[in-house]
Amino acid sequence: MTLRTWLTAVLAALAITCSPAMADDEGWTWLFKDGSLDHWIVPEGDNGHWKVLTVDGSPVIDYDARSEAPGDKNLVTREEFGDFVLEFEWRIKETPYINPNIPYVLPDGTHARGVDGKPLKLALPDSDSGVYLRGSSKSQVNIWCWPIGSGEVYGYRMDGSLPPEVRAGVTPKTQADKPVGEWNAFQITMKGDRLTVVLNGVTVLEDAQLPGIPERGNLQLQHHGGFRDGKYTGPPSLVQFRKIRIKPLD
Rank of each mutant, 00 (worst) to 15 (best):
D128K: 10
L120F: 07
P100L: 14
G82C: 05
Y104W: 13
D108Q: 04
T110N: 01
G109S: 05
V105E: 08
N101F: 15
L106R: 08
T95L: 03
D116I: 14
A123W: 02
T95E: 14
K121A: 02
P125H: 01
A123D: 05
L86A: 12
I92Q: 09
P100G: 09
P107H: 02
K121S: 01
P125K: 04
D128N: 15
D126G: 03
S127Q: 04
G114K: 10
P96V: 07
K118F: 01
E89C: 15
L106M: 15
K93Y: 02
H111S: 05
K118C: 01
P96F: 13
V105S: 08
W90D: 04
N99I: 01
G130S: 03
I92H: 12
N101K: 13
T110S: 12
K118R: 08
H111G: 00
L86E: 07
D126I: 02
D108V: 14
W90P: 09
N99R: 02
K118Q: 13
P96S: 09
I92S: 11
R113S: 13
R113A: 12
L124E: 01
D116E: 13
L106D: 00
V115P: 15
Y97F: 15
L120I: 13
K93M: 15
I92D: 09
P96Y: 12
P119V: 06
D83T: 04
K93L: 15
D83I: 08
Y104E: 15
E87G: 05
I98M: 11
G109M: 00
T110E: 03
V85C: 06
G114E: 03
N101S: 13
I98R: 10
V85R: 08
L120S: 00
V115C: 02
D128G: 02
V85W: 04
A123P: 00
S129C: 10
I92T: 08
E94N: 14
G114L: 08
E89G: 09
S129D: 06
D83Y: 13
P125A: 03
D83R: 05
E87M: 15
E87W: 09
G82E: 14
K118G: 04
F88A: 14
G130H: 04
P107L: 07
N99L: 10
K93N: 14
D126F: 04
A112Q: 09
T110I: 01
V85D: 06
Y104K: 14
P100F: 07
T95H: 04
K118T: 06
L124F: 04
S127C: 00
D83F: 13
K93S: 11
P96T: 05
P119D: 10
G114A: 12
H111V: 05
R91Y: 06
N101W: 13
L122G: 00
L86R: 09
Y104L: 11
K121F: 01
F88V: 12
S127T: 03
D128T: 02
A123R: 07
L86T: 06
G114I: 11
R113M: 11
H111K: 05
I102G: 03
D116G: 14
P125F: 03
D108R: 02
G117P: 11
V115R: 10
L86C: 11
Y97Q: 10
